[in-house]
Design a binder for these strands. Sequence first.
DNA 1: CGGCCGCATTGAAGTAGATTAAGAAGTAAT
DNA 2: ATTACTTCTTAATCTACTTCAATGCGGCCG
Lengths: 199, 199
Amino acid sequence: MSNPSIFSSIDAYIARCIMLSEADYAYFHSQLSVKNYKKKSRLLSAGEVCTFEGFINKGCCRVYYLNANGNEVDLYFGIEEWWVSDLASFSQQKPSNLFIETLEDTELIFISYEAKERLFKKIPSFDRMFRLMVQRTHETLMKRLLSTYSEPAEERYLAFVNRYPAIVQRVPQHLIAAYLGITPEFLSKIRSKLKSKNK
Amino acid sequence: MSNPSIFSSIDAYIARCIMLSEADYAYFHSQLSVKNYKKKSRLLSAGEVCTFEGFINKGCCRVYYLNANGNEVDLYFGIEEWWVSDLASFSQQKPSNLFIETLEDTELIFISYEAKERLFKKIPSFDRMFRLMVQRTHETLMKRLLSTYSEPAEERYLAFVNRYPAIVQRVPQHLIAAYLGITPEFLSKIRSKLKSKNK
DNA sequence: CGGCCGCATTGAAGTAGATTAAGAAGTAAT
DNA sequence: ATTACTTCTTAATCTACTTCAATGCGGCCG
């Protein structure tokens, strides 16, 4: 299926999990909406109920948390083919603790709470798809928690660079530091130490 | 329904998520098995494929990870009404990185991979129940990750005591230290500091 | 009963990473 | 061209936590 549509990327993503008919895809598309954002747009703020799950068609976002000391902790960065949302807020329709914002001009495909429920009703295999999605996220989160408790910052940084080379190119370093749970100054030190090592 | 059966606890758990008929419950029970373990029994070791999700009917377990330095990091402790499993290993039927063992004599209700698949097929609302379960776990894990990056050990300890008072009573302190990501010595210091504060 | 082992505590010394402060270099706005 | 803002770096001092070593103590097994 050569698919030049705006949904080709998300369709390919879905197809990796479940099999759908053409009619299913048509219905699926009817439940989506597409929006474009400028760099540094705020998609969600703490205190709001998260009304969407967003699939990044083009661009880059960060999902972060503002702690009691006023420091930002980055939960994750998303580029093309990633979903951004606060699942806890979205699925229970309660206020979020998170912020989501774009780091570049970004095109997002949105699915709303109601649309998702309609989708579950009409095409039950979506229930399975989203379960698999959450399971995968859960696994990633668990690995990250374990590495936080097991490895010093330098190794966590190397693992991050190794795992997300595309993201390292697009996200400023002070945000990567916030993801790793360290200060930008210390990340800078780690990097200069690594540089001198590799010579 | 007064239910003196061995399944009364798990049935109550299910009922909080989805509605099932008597026939559904009967089928559900037919897919389960019950086993009793002595204290310090190993239920899963890293390298094995996790073949079960286990519901704790009575007793106490820990799920932990052995890092490169040979230190154990506790992922979580389970008491009555908790599930223990390595979901990543179980759902993808690949080798686990985790260990699971009992901390007390423990009675577990097991569901196997095949039984779970049969359950999904026969009673589709289980798909939803397990999705909700994973979502909740995911939310808990995320909060823990954020607090690890935001709060010093003392506050994390207080939050743990506050959230899991029943577990604090049953789990030795050096394991709680391993959960909090600190050494037993340092936890001991935190505790003595708190004691002297509260006088 | 005694012995020993797992668990908690305490203290001294060491380290990973934070904080503060300052400056360089790139980029955007005027 | 100048200002102003963002990103990154470097260095000095500070602290939360670790490591190591010693001690105590309740529980269990011979």
